[in-house]
Write a protein that binds this DNA or RNA. Structure first.
Lengths: 200, 200
DNA sequence: CGCCGCGTTGAGCCACGTCAACATAGGTGG
DNA sequence: CCACCTATGTTGACGTGGCTCAACGCGGCG
C-alpha cells in the first residue's frame, strides 16, 4: 500500500526514504539542522523550541500531522522533535503542495486544531489534564485499538505543565479508578478501559 | 498604500471588502458561521473553540497571522474569533494560495510559531507569564511603537490560564516596577518602559 | 556488584485560586 | 446635569492544589 506516486526527479539528492520508524524516546531531528518534512503515520511526537535559556516544549504532533514543514521554506528545522511513542513517519513531499493547495490547507487546519488541543492540555485540574492527554493519545495513536503507549513522565509533565510527581499520582489514580490498566512494567502499553465518552 | 492587485473576478459573490476595522472586545466571527479568511494587519485576536461544555480559549493571532483559513476548505469557521485589541483585518484570498504554495507554507510556519508562543504563555510563574504576554503584544501589535493596547483582564487570564485577580496583581506589579506605564484609565494604552531585552 | 535513570509515594509549604468588598468608568434615562 | 446601574478592575484575607524535597523501589547496564 501507499505506492509512491511518480515524483518528479527533482534536485532533491536525498535517498528516497519511504518510511521511517522511530522508537519511543529517540530524537527525530534537532532544531537548526537540515532535513525534510514528515507526516506522522502513527505514534506521537513532541516538539521543542530551543532558545538561549534551554529547550521548551512547544507542540505536539499525532497521526496525520506534519512536522518540519518549515524546511520547505528555510531548509532547516525550527523545532526539535522527539518521539514520545513508537512512530512511523513518511516523507511529506513538496510535490504534494505544488499539486494542490488543498493538501496544504488541510495541514494548516490540522495544525490549528492540534494547537488548540495542546493548549487545552494545560488548563483545568491536574488529574483532568492527564486524563485528557491519555484520551487524546488513545484517540490518535493507534487506529481504533485500545492499546496506547504512554510517554515518559517527563514528557507528560512538560505537555501538561505539571511536575512528574503530580503526573505519576494522576496516572496511579487513573489505574486505581479502572480507567487505565497497566500492561508492561515501565512506560509500557496500557489499555484504555474507561468510558469512550471522551469529551476533549 | 496597499493597493489591491488585480484580483480575478471569481465566483466570489461577496462584496470586495478591502479592510475591516474591529475595536477591542468586538466579536469578529462565531464558530460554525460562514465567512472568509482574514489576515491580521494589526491588533490581536483571541480564538475560542466552542464545545458542548462551553467556549474555551484555543489560540492567539497577531499581526501577520491568518484566521479562518479553514473556511477555504469547509466554508465555515472552526473557531470563534474576538478582538482583544483594536484590529485591522484584510481578506486573505484563495487567489494567493493558487499562486504560490509558498504563501501557504509561510502561513503554516507562522501558525506553528504562534502556537508555541501561546503554549509558552501558560508555563512559568504568574508574573512572568503576564510579563511575557505584554512583551509579545508589544512585539506584534503596533509597528515598532511603544504603545500597546492591553486586553481585558478576562482575556489575559484565559490566555495565561490564570485568574483575573492574579493577572491584575501582576499588572500592578509591572507598573510599580516601571516596566509598564498606564496611559488611559481602563484597558487603555500603556507604554513599555522596560528593557527591550525581551527573551520570549 | 554498584551505578544510573525512571517511577512511586509521603510530608510540608507556598503560589495561586477563591471569596468578598470596594473603586471607577461608561451607559442610560430622567 | 444627576441618579442609577452594570461591567470591569483592584485589593485584602484565607484556603488549598500542586510544587518541592526527600526517600525508596525497580530494572538495565557496564
Amino acid at each position: 500500500m501507499h505506492t509512491a506516486m511518480a515524483t518528479p526527479a527533482a534536485a532533491n539528492t536525498l535517498p528516497t526514504v519511504q518510511l521511517r520508524r522511530i522508537s519511543i524516546g529517540e530524537r527525530i531531528h534537532a532544531a537548526g539542522t537540515e532535513g525534510i518534512a514528515w507526516r506522522v503515520k502513527s505514534g506521537a511526537v513532541r516538539l521543542d523550541r530551543v532558545t538561549a535559556e534551554g529547550s521548551n516544549y512547544a507542540g505536539l504532533a499525532l497521526r496525520g500531522d506534519v512536522i518540519g514543514a518549515e524546511t520547505l521554506l528555510f531548509g532547516k528545522y525550527s523545532f526539535a522533535a522527539c518521539a514520545i511513542g513508537d512512530c512511523e513517519l513518511e516523507p511529506w513531499l513538496a510535490a504534494d503542495k505544488e499539486l494542490s493547495g488543498e493538501s496544504l490547507l488541510q495541514t494548516l487546519a490540522g495544525a490549528e486544531r492540534r494547537a488548540a488541543d495542546a493548549l487545552a492540555l494545560r488548563a483545568g485540574e491536574a488529574f483532568e489534564r492527564v486524563r485528557r492527554l491519555c484520551l487524546l493519545l488513545a484517540r490518535y495513536c493507534d487506529e481504533g485499538r485500545k492499546e496506547i503507549t504512554i510517554p515518559e513522565l517527563r514528557d507528560m509533565a512538560a505537555i501538561t505543565n505539571l511536575t512528574e510527581e503530580t503526573v505519576s499520582r494522576a496516572m496511579s489514580r487513573l489505574c486505581r479508578l479502572g480507567m487505565l490498566q497497566r500492561q508492561g512494567r515501565r512506560h509500557g502499553l496500557v489499555l484504555v478501559a474507561a468510558d469512550p465518552a471522551f469529551a476533549i
